[in-house]
């Protein structure tokens, strides 16, 4: 089946997923959320595994616990 064009008005969180579909949540300023458990094949070899119900995969490449998000994507501010 070919890819379907994105529907800009839909929100899957308000309806159940089909049994054979794994839901992934993308966001501009944050990790990719994937329903677990997962195995992640790393580019330089090696596999990271997690049995959490959901995992947060780093997309900014700043995480010190890559491939898992450690919130290093957050904006930083000098005051306070």
């Amino acid at each position: 089946m070919p890819n379907e064009a994105p529907d800009p008005t839909a929100d899957v969180r308000e309806r159940p997923a089909a049994d054979d579909v794994r839901r992934i949540y993308l966001q501009k300023d944050g990790p990719m959320l994937v329903e677990g458990p997962v195995e992640v094949q790393l580019e330089d070899g090696g596999v990271a595994t997690s049995d959490r119900f959901r995992v947060a995969l780093c997309t900014c490449r700043r995480s010190r616990r890559y491939p898992w998000c450690d919130t290093s994507h957050r904006r930083r501010r000098r005051d306070r």
Partner: peptide
Amino acid sequence: HVEADAVHEQVVRHEVVDG
């Protein structure tokens, strides 16, 4: 807690608070 709460934060904000 570094890894667990990076996930929990996302679930609590997007599912629990928004929900």
